[in-house]
Design a protein around this nucleic acid. Structure first.
Lengths: 342, 342
DNA sequence: TTGTAGGCGTTATCAC
DNA sequence: GTGATAACGCCTACAA
């Protein structure tokens, strides 16, 4: 049994510059300079320091260093529930981009965010900015960020606040165009499968998609003849389609997102044996990867993920360069993606 | 134009305890105590301090505080390429759990991780631990963590290293059982759609799945009659299925993961007009959400996501409690999920 | 080129 | 209860 095994079970502290300095027989400043590009330091001494650092396993502690820096390169990312694949895909792309930009994302995810106390701790971090995927907690986060002067960028919903930037897509325009397309194809009996109406903070976003449909229908003197709330999931879409089609005869089933449309499609084809689009049109929203798969080949509206991420990154840079600038609201287009289900 | 607009475009520094102390007419220590549970402090004074803190937007800076703490509650999470939905689902659940456990995950994501320099910076953070989703960079990360005494937990591949914990599923057992099932159903002509063979670090994981098939076949004096490498994506699976079926007559098309199986399924049904499972069996691996959707109803093998995450969290706690303990290798079962495609 | 002496924002310790 | 004071680990003038 060696001494190694008798080390107390306490977390070993990080190796510090002081330890390296002592081992290498130099001053702590010298160690610091060895890791500072362009600092004056004898080449030979530098080499020795780096060698000792490698041997001991030393890296400058960025937390300590950040105390005197004005930026930490850390960005907090608050994801929503991630119930939809679109959110997942968007967050994934966003995280990749942030990494590529040299930012370190701290991700706060899932239902637990709804619990204010958990997110509260996040404000102890000296983050450069926060990026919020619209969903729960919006109001609280917006207010807290304002109070703490933390730059905030929101996506998925638009926020009109002093210095908050936001990016969202023109939901209503998308569903309006979609509905027009269906009307041209002769559809007249429209049903709408909605997102969860209880989530108050997503209210605007949800309502917009529905309103686009209603506006297009109203222009022809029509209206939605059946609606069900659901939860943005495949299973939810399937159940909602069943509920609607049990009671109503419709020829167009519009869904507030793609996952629900996939579920509805599945129900219509496999359980009812109906043909799409011959007997019934089924459409989604977002244009997630899956929508283009041959088995779905879903007619939908594109929620331009990459474009949104681009804007978020751009807004982040601009906001960091000029924290005092006015809040910007970016609306991106929601283009029609006509495929095979309309 | 007010003074507000003339604020220089410099990032406003965080409000400090000193500022609060001055404003409230107390010492810095008092401010610190106001935020320390169970510290001696006059109730009235505390109330005043908290009020001023709220007004000024002050929160104790956890980076500064962490200098004297032995733990930061920050955990680095290195995700792989996230090309497969399974990875996405697993990481999502993991992040949620970490948040719930009071840990703050810094996520390093995507292809950029393959670039060593980007990950290098991560080691400047005084993280409590690193969690690595098997994939690129394994070796480098394992070595660096060992050198820096950073607890490391790997999932997806098993690592036999001094103090590294790892969790993986019994890939070979899963595909072995699956192949047996197919053999019982009378299948004899097996094809295998593999993951990317170029990714050396995933070699073990990939090989295991294939070996399970080979072993079961060998017991009947059979072998795989056709193979294609692909990339774990739907499109990749579709293309590989096409390539294989153009040249070979097979009655069982086994895929290294579910997404590829979905693609293969799509090709077989829609392009060839074959019936599954009557004409041909198609199977996957992982049992992602999608696999159970009626339109796929995929026979597959369960990669027990939640169980894996449970183990990761457990190993994290145990490792933090006892950093010196020996590395643990956890293997979880890969149960058969017989559905409708075999 | 080098070492010493601050200061970054916090908490813990110590006298009062 | 309270306020100085000393760490925590780092970087950077400043003086040598």
């Amino acid at each position: 049994m060696t001494d190694e095994n008798n080390i107390p079970a306490k977390p070993r502290r990080r190796v510090t510059a002081k330890a390296v300095a002592e081992r290498a027989g130099v001053s702590r400043s010298a160690v610091s300079r060895a890791f500072t590009k362009g600092a004056y330091l004898d080449q030979e001494k530098k080499a020795r320091i780096l060698e000792v650092a490698e041997e001991l396993g030393y890296r400058p502690n960025v937390f300590a260093a950040s105390l005197q820096a004005e930026s930490t390169n850390i960005v907090a990312v608050l994801t929503g529930n991630m119930k939809s694949h679109f959110d997942t895909e968007l967050v994934e792309e966003l995280l990749g981009r942030l990494t590529a930009e040299g930012k370190w994302p701290i991700v706060v995810n899932g239902e637990k965010v709804a619990n204010a106390s958990s997110i509260e701790g996040l404000f102890g971090f000296p983050v450069d900015a926060m990026i919020l995927r619209g969903g729960s907690m919006d109001k609280y986060v917006v207010e807290s960020c304002a109070k703490l002067h933390i730059p905030l960028i929101v996506s998925g919903v638009t926020v009109k606040s002093e210095r908050v930037d936001s990016v969202a897509c023109r939901n209503a325009d998308g569903t309006y165009a979609l509905t027009q397309l269906l009307l041209e194809k002769g559809r007249r009996r429209f049903a709408w499968i909605d997102g969860p109406t209880r989530v108050v903070t997503q209210e605007a976003h949800r309502r917009e998609r529905r309103q686009g449909v209603e506006r297009a229908l109203a222009e022809r003197g029509l209206e939605i003849i059946a609606t069900r709330d659901s939860d943005y999931t495949y299973e939810g879409g399937l159940a909602a389609a069943e509920a609607i089609l049990r009671e109503q005869d419709v020829d167009a089933l519009l869904c507030a997102n793609d996952a629900m449309a996939a579920g509805a499609l599945s129900y219509v084809r496999e359980n009812l044996g109906l043909k799409v689009p011959e007997d019934l049109a089924v459409t989604g929203f977002d244009d997630i990867d899956m929508a283009s798969w041959p088995c779905f080949n879903l007619t939908t509206v594109q929620n331009p993920k990459s474009e949104i991420v681009d804007h978020i990154i751009r807004l982040l840079h601009e906001r960091l360069a000029n924290p005092a600038k006015a809040g910007e609201v970016v609306l991106v287009g929601a283009d029609l993606v006509p495929r095979g289900t309309h």
